[in-house]
């Protein structure tokens, strides 16, 4: 098993400083849709200028470099203990190099660890053994502002008139977008999970955010829901930064899980416009980033 510490460091650098092309393209389209001279268009101009500058200077797109969330798919026989150690070393090194802000705060004492290493759950690392030969590592840096506006609903919800069906899901997700206003750094991307228990549901809502903005859900019902939600959310006209305008969300990604007969959870993870998501694939001696 190779030492991948340097490769992980590059994954963190790339994720923090270089916005994925599909997200940037989506922001550019959003910019074209706003009224010339509006606060919304001006906000998107600033956002796009910042994206280019961060890429050029290799500095963080956003100062809140968030919770690093790693999803690791590894072939049989790899040591997850070693991989975890290498990832943690890379995260501490990335903090030293100012690709990451020190973000791990002890909740009891209030002390910041200074190197982004907290208890074993910080940074978050999920492992899954797969059949293939490649090691695939997805990373999301999820900031606190947008994490704070995430929401979980239990259907039915009387206040919103939301029943236990996809129409009910639509209603509660719109409520979450309304409650977020501009506080999650709109225009955001919504990860939506339907079903599961409270824990697995939130987990799946984050997993959904690893999909590219321009892909289509393989489930036709969920694909329809994603499109409808994107259109409806944009009718709220909260707009970039909550200044009012055409684009409130860049996209919606939904996922369904089996549930207990008694439970029907809808979990919404709101990702800010700075949707920092990257993938690293180790294929033999080669390491590919996308």
């Amino acid at each position: 098993m190779p030492d991948l510490t340097e490769a992980f460091l590059e994954l963190v650098r790339l994720t923090s400083t270089d916005l994925p092309p599909d997200v940037e393209a989506s922001l550019k389209r959003a910019r074209e849709q706003e009224a010339p001279g509006s606060a919304a268009q001006s906000a998107l101009d600033t956002i796009l200028e910042n994206v280019a500058l961060a890429r050029k200077n290799s500095t963080p797109i956003c100062q809140d470099t968030g919770t690093p969330i790693f999803y690791v798919q590894h072939p049989p026989g790899w040591s997850t203990t070693k991989l975890k150690g290498q990832i943690r070393t890379a995260v501490a090194e990335a903090t030293k190099k100012t690709y990451l802000r020190p973000n791990a705060v002890d909740t009891i004492t209030g002390k910041n660890s200074g190197d982004n290493l907290g208890d074993p759950a910080f940074p978050t690392i999920h492992f899954e053994e797969t059949e293939g030969e490649d090691l695939i590592v997805d990373l999301i840096l999820k900031g606190g502002g947008c994490e704070n506006v995430g929401a979980q609903y239990s259907l039915p919800n009387g206040r919103l008139g939301a029943g236990r069906d996809l129409e009910g899901v639509r209603k509660v997700v719109l409520d979450a977008v309304f409650n977020a206003q501009g506080k999650g750094c709109a225009p955001g991307v919504l990860g939506v999970a339907i079903g599961g228990d409270r824990g697995s549901s939130y987990y799946a809502s984050k997993e959904a955010l690893f999909r590219k903005l321009d892909d289509e859900n393989a489930d036709s019902e969920l694909a329809k829901l994603e499109n409808r939600l994107t259109q409806d959310a944009n009718q709220l006209r909260i707009g970039p930064m909550g200044f009012g305008g055409e684009t409130t969300v860049l996209g919606v990604k939904a996922k369904s899980l089996h549930r207990l007969p008694a439970s029907y959870f809808v979990s919404v993870s709101y990702m800010c416009w700075a949707h920092r998501r990257r993938r690293m694939t180790v294929h033999g001696d080669e390491t590919i980033y996308e």
């Binding site: 906000a43 600033t46 956002i47 200028e49 910042n50 500058l53 961060a54 200077n57 500095t59 963080p60 797109i61 956003c62 100062q63 809140d64 502002g145 501009g182 750094c185 930064m241 200044f243 800010c272 416009w273 700075a274």
Partner: peptide, 13 residues
């Protein structure tokens, strides 16, 4: 005063 959220590299300048 509202600054642009996420425009961190730019504002740092």
């Amino acid at each position: 005063l509202h600054a642009i959220g996420g425009a961190a590299s730019l504002i740092a300048q």
